[in-house]
């Protein structure tokens, strides 16, 4: 009888554990890019050129990874749903588009066109520009 109760208790505890894990996993949020160490540090024109030269290779190298991209701010755009920094790619075809995470949108207030900056974001590939999402300023205090 006692043993049976113990087993039941273990089963119930395990079920609760599984359910809790499932619930946590289902509601898991994206990690804050600012807290992730970048897999690569690269200059914006070099990154764009890597994609223009061999898109498949660059997709393989950069996509889904957190990349710290350094470059010159071309423009900053903000509206209700998006906040975007365009980095100069030194190319007539495009540059690097950095879409900021909502929690880091205040950081955009400090940025001016012409300013050098390093932005961390998750690379999603290239259309005309290389596109990074979930961006944050690297070393926002500097």
């Amino acid at each position: 009888m006692k043993k049976g109760k113990l087993i039941l208790l273990i089963i119930v505890a395990a079920l609760i554990g599984v359910a809790f894990y499932g619930w946590k996993e289902y509601h898991r949020q994206h990690p804050d890019t600012a807290t992730i160490v970048a897999a690569f540090s690269v200059k914006a024109p070099d990154m764009l050129k890597a994609f223009q030269d061999d898109e498949n290779l660059a997709n393989h190298q950069y996509n889904d990874k957190v990349v710290a991209v350094s470059g010159t701010v071309l423009k900053v755009e903000r509206n209700d749903s998006t906040q975007t920094v365009w980095l100069d790619g030194k190319s007539p075809m495009g540059g690097v588009i950095c879409q900021f995470e909502r929690s880091h949108k205040e950081e955009l207030g400090k940025l001016q066109p012409g300013q050098p900056v390093t932005i961390k974001g998750v690379c999603t590939g290239m259309l005309m520009d290389v596109v990074l999402v979930r961006c944050a300023l690297d070393n926002p205090t500097q």
Partner: peptide
Amino acid sequence: SVLMKGFEFEKALQQ
């Protein structure tokens, strides 16, 4: 044209 990896979901698991 659109990059498939550029679709952002609220929940990381869905993405």
